[in-house]
């Protein structure tokens, strides 16, 4: 980070405290995900049927579920799994998408057309339905939620990287690198990708929120994460059975956790866009 970027960042953060708050929130979330197991007040798995379905109290801040487990502790423990799923899915599609998109945008030709067709096919699916079918087909495991979420994100990254590289492929500095005897691979990796990465980083933050919602949706319908593992989507699914009898805390608190997490990453993404790419400011 050069001092100019730093100054710009500080300027943006001062003018836009929301981004600063979002960054703080995201930091707290990551911290909770890291140290969760050491700060929870109760054992998230231990059931205590005598204390089942109790509303929030001083003892159990977010109430207890049908097995008497402490909802708050489960929420805290679940942060790690939810964030890990979303982060690894987005990282995966970012890495694969950036490389495929960059190669297509740089080389063009037949490969570009084939990949374009493949992307069109992926985009013709309602994406959540595609993810659902993939998790069911690959096997009902957490890794497959990651893979499915990564694949349905892939088209956006490929298109983005392709478009960004395509407009730069004939730029003077690319031709200069070629003239200096750099190979195509080296031009892509050393010059083109670093140029498009900042814009893509914004996409990552915006995508994280979406990936979390997606993963939670999948586990809500019973795919991927299995009980008794604490995970926000599955906690909502378990609480759903008791909502019609007024046990709101089983749904509201995991829902709140999901909402705040996604909100943090979305606001952070908007802020990052202002910092990294002032042209795209809205």
């Amino acid at each position: 980070m050069t001092s100019a970027t730093l100054r710009h960042t500080v300027w943006v953060l001062r003018g836009n405290p929301v981004t600063a708050v979002a960054a703080g929130g995201a930091f707290v979330l990551c911290l909770v995900a890291l140290i969760g197991p050491w700060i929870v007040p109760h054992d998230p798995i231990a059931s205590n049927v005598a204390n089942a379905l109790k509303p929030p109290s001083a003892q159990n801040w977010a109430g207890t579920d049908q097995l008497g487990r402490d909802v708050f502790s489960r929420l805290v423990i679940a942060a790690r799994l939810d964030l890990a799923i979303a982060a690894s899915a987005v990282t995966l599609s970012f890495a694969v998408g950036a490389v495929i998109g960059a190669v297509c945008g740089y080389l063009g030709g037949r490969l570009d057309r084939y990949v374009g067709r493949f992307v069109d096919i992926l985009m013709a699916f309602p994406l959540f339905v595609l993810a659902m079918a993939m998790v069911a087909a690959l096997g009902n495991r957490v890794e497959n939620i990651v893979i499915a979420t990564a694949i349905i994100n892939l088209p956006f990254y490929i298109r983005f990287a392709r478009a960004e590289v395509n407009v730069r492929r004939n730029a003077g500095w690319v031709e200069a690198a070629r003239a200096c005897g750099d190979s195509h691979l080296s031009v892509i990796l050393r010059f083109l990708l670093p140029n498009v990465l900042p814009a893509m980083a914004v996409q990552v933050s915006l995508n994280l929120g979406w990936a979390i919602l997606n993963a939670a949706g999948l586990s809500f319908i019973g795919l991927g994460v299995k009980p008794p593992t604490p995970e926000w989507g599955i906690m909502v699914a378990e609480g759903a059975r008791f909502i019609a009898t007024g046990k709101w805390w089983l749904v509201a608190f995991p829902g709140l956790a999901l909402m705040l997490t996604v909100l943090c990453f979305n606001l952070l993404g908007d802020g990052l866009r202002d910092i990294l790419d002032p042209r795209m400011r809205t």
Binding site: A240, A244, G246, A252, G255, M259, L267
Partner: peptide, 23 residues
Amino acid sequence: CALGVCVPTFVSGLLLIYVFYYL
């Protein structure tokens, strides 16, 4: 708008049930 995209449909659906059906 910022809030709307963050609430998963299954959560908002269940909360609507709580408010309009139960309460």
